[in-house]
């Protein structure tokens, strides 16, 4: 994988003047994002025609609320996968953040801003552990995060202490599904996710630190030789993912019932990775976009909700999501091969 055949992989981070930087940047939107957008729009139109109420605020609203935590954690996961890493501990981080925050909301009746801060701080700390182990341990991220996922799981279960957290107050309702969670029909949680995506899009495209993530994913050694501080960047990437998982945990508490059980977050790591991969981020690193991730998350939930609203068997949702993943990875590999040949 030579550096100059894949311009978006390793831009000269050290001394590239503004003009040449703009010239080597990929187009504002890429093919995969347009394809995804078209697929989502077509599906929404079809579902709008064939179901009685898919395109109503009562249906799209909850759908976007369901998408929000996936897209939010997906932003962090996109960073991680761009650096050729992966984080399978996000579900466990969500669980730990959620249970500690929920316990504090019940026991100490903490106000909403503090609850959000606590959740983010816990996620950040856990993500930092991942980052430090991965950056300085030099073991593959899947092994590290698989290990920490189990440790976090244990930690969360200790806090649960073989029971559920009951009587959670409505402190976080502004992130929920109901009326307090919407302004002008737009769910706050989804708006937060969109803002996160926008900031991350700008960061990955225009900030030097953001561009360096692509370089790390393309070739870590080359990036190091080019003067990028690889280790601190990696720590930062996993820490951000943890912090976003903490914020997502607040959304899960808000959209859940007044009882929190140990299943909170379970399976979310795979949903997040599915959204990122369908969004066109290359699983081998060096390429990817957060806009794609947002669209991927919307696509997955559209398919799952669509299957239910059409009255089709629930299992079909798995089949369709699986097919989307295979298609997305397949096209990515084909493009990669074409690029290498070029």
């Amino acid at each position: 994988m030579s550096v100059d055949t894949a311009p978006e992989r390793a831009p000269e981070p050290a001394a590239a003047p503004q003009v040449s930087l703009r010239r080597i940047l990929p187009p504002v939107v890429t093919g995969q994002e347009i394809v995804l957008l078209v697929v989502v729009v077509v599906l929404w139109v079809l579902l709008g025609i064939f179901t009685p109420a898919f395109l109503t605020t009562g249906s799209i609203g909850p759908l976007l609320v369901q998408v929000a935590p996936i897209a939010l954690v997906g932003v962090g996961m996109t960073f991680v996968i761009i650096t050729a890493g992966i984080d399978v501990s996000v579900a466990a981080m969500i669980m730990v953040s959620a249970v500690v925050t929920a316990r504090m909301m019940v026991g100490l009746d903490i106000p909403a801003p503090l609850a959000v801060l606590v959740a983010i701080a816990i996620g950040l700390a856990l993500g930092m552990i991942n980052g430090l182990l991965i950056a300085y341990g030099r073991v593959h991220p899947i092994i590290i995060t698989f290990g920490t996922a189990n440790v976090f799981q244990w930690l969360g279960l200790r806090v649960f202490d073989s029971s559920t957290v009951n009587g959670i107050p409505g402190t976080l309702d502004f992130l929920g599904r109901g009326d307090p969670g919407r302004t002008l029909g737009v769910p706050h949680s989804f708006a937060i996710a969109v803002v996160a995506v926008a900031v991350a899009w700008w960061f990955l495209r225009y900030a030097k630190a953001g561009r360096s993530l692509y370089a790390i994913g393309g070739n870590q050694n080359a990036a190091r030789l080019a003067g990028i501080k690889v280790q601190p960047r990696l720590v930062w990437v996993y820490a951000v993912t943890g912090a976003l998982a903490g914020l997502a945990a607040c959304m899960m508490i808000a959209t859940g019932t007044s009882t929190l059980d140990q299943s909170v977050g379970s399976g979310k790591e795979l949903q997040v990775i599915a959204a990122v991969v369908i969004g066109g981020t290359s699983i081998i690193g060096g390429r990817g976009s957060v806009v794609g991730t947002l669209l991927g998350a919307i696509l997955v939930q559209t398919v799952v909700s669509g299957v239910t609203q059409l009255g089709w068997p629930t299992q079909l949702g798995f089949l369709f999501v699986g097919i989307f993943i295979v298609i997305a990875v397949g096209t990515d590999l084909i493009r990669e091969r074409a690029r290498r040949r070029a």
Partner: peptide, 26 residues
């Protein structure tokens, strides 16, 4: 009985599916 759906042991998924069912069957 108009539909039977399966949410796994996931409370949030059950809520979303119930909303979808209410929307598709006014």
């Amino acid at each position: 009985i108009v539909d039977i759906v399966y949410a796994g042991e996931d409370q949030a998924a059950a809520t979303q599916m119930a909303l979808d069912l209410m929307n598709s069957n006014p």
